[in-house]
């Protein structure tokens, strides 16, 4: 805290008022509501609610549909995270290495950051169009009859593909800025010690990038959990049927469309616990990161 502060009593309260009232109204109140109604069963006709303890949670874990969604979300998040991190790391290392056109490559590789997730879904519908989609035709050449929105696996594949595409730029930007913060002396020393670029990467660059990687891991999982909603909703067009959906989509379906407030609140709380756990891991990593550098 600054020592030389102002002494006014009510002015700072006034300054804080907008922020505090917004978060009370739209953060603490809804979070509390979610927690509370996850223990209640709401009457569908609006005649009050009854306390049911952990029943809503038990119902979730007994539900085959919910568990399938949970498994899909896990596979989806891990695939998107791993693939977009790997591709972005490769591109960042190459973009850091070239002399000519470095700036152009950087620009071309980062602009997709600004593309909205639903547009990524829109692209998936065109690329994988049943009749003439360029990627459908490509896979057809290998004997894969790609049927987006009809086949569970194919839909999942398309969702992962465009979600990875959308996420590469963020990872690229962070990896590149991580690479550029490696001191020149370290690079030169590594160059003298180790002739092979591949082994130089794994023994020097990769460990130095590890903190950035850990941090990005969390960012990517959060992205796959929440930000992909728009992509998925655009691909499924309001009509999931038996197609893959993520946990966030399930909350939306059950709570907003299905009016199962208790069940969807329990799902919200499960998601909160997941995010909290991730954030705690992230904070510990950030602390460690500070010790490294």
């Amino acid at each position: 805290m600054k020592r030389a502060a102002f002494d006014q009593k009510w002015f700072p309260v006034l300054l804080l008022l907008p922020q505090l009232s917004i978060i009370c109204l739209f953060f603490y109140w809804p979070a509390w509501q979610a927690l509370r109604s996850s223990f209640y069963l709401e009457d569908p006709f609006g005649f009050g609610s009854t306390f049911v303890g952990f029943e809503n949670y038990l119902r979730l874990f007994r539900s085959g549909e919910y568990m399938q969604t949970a498994w899909f979300t896990l596979v989806f998040s891990l695939s998107v995270t791993f693939l977009s991190l790997a591709i972005a790391l490769l591109l960042a290392v190459k973009a850091d290495g070239v002399l000519r056109g470095a700036k152009t490559y950087r620009t071309l590789l980062m602009w997709v950051y600004a593309v909205a997730p639903p547009v990524a879904g829109f692209l998936a519908l065109i690329l994988f169009n049943q009749r003439w989609g360029p990627l459908t035709e490509f896979f057809r050449a290998f004997g894969w009859d790609f049927r987006i929105r009809l086949d569970y696996f194919d839909t999942a594949f398309a969702m992962i593909a465009v979600s990875v595409w959308k996420q590469i730029p963020v990872n690229f930007i962070f990896f590149l800025s991580g690479l550029q913060s490696i001191p020149k002396a370290v690079r030169e020393a590594a160059l003298i010690d180790n002739r092979s670029a591949v082994s130089r990467f794994w023994t020097v660059t990769f460990p130095l990038l590890a903190p950035t990687g850990f941090f990005l891991l969390i960012i990517n999982i959060t992205y796959s959990l929440f930000d992909t909603f728009g992509t998925i909703d655009t691909i499924l067009r309001n009509n999931p049927g038996d197609q893959p959906i993520t946990l966030t989509y399930q909350v939306y379906l059950d709570g907003f469309r299905g009016q199962d407030i208790g069940g969807s609140s329990a799902q919200s709380v499960v998601l909160m616990v997941v995010v909290l756990a991730l954030t705690i891991v992230q904070f510990r990593m950030v602390e460690r990161r500070i010790h490294y550098t």
Partner: peptide
């Protein structure tokens, strides 16, 4: 940052706890 507030620590934590949970996890009650 610039004022001596009696409940500064409380306000600080009340504000920064919001970093933990995105809007999506409390979407229906919101």
């Amino acid at each position: 940052v610039y004022f001596r507030l009696r409940f500064a620590t409380l306000a600080f934590w009340a504000i920064f706890t919001t970093l933990l949970l995105p809007l999506e996890v409390r979407i229906v009650p919101s």
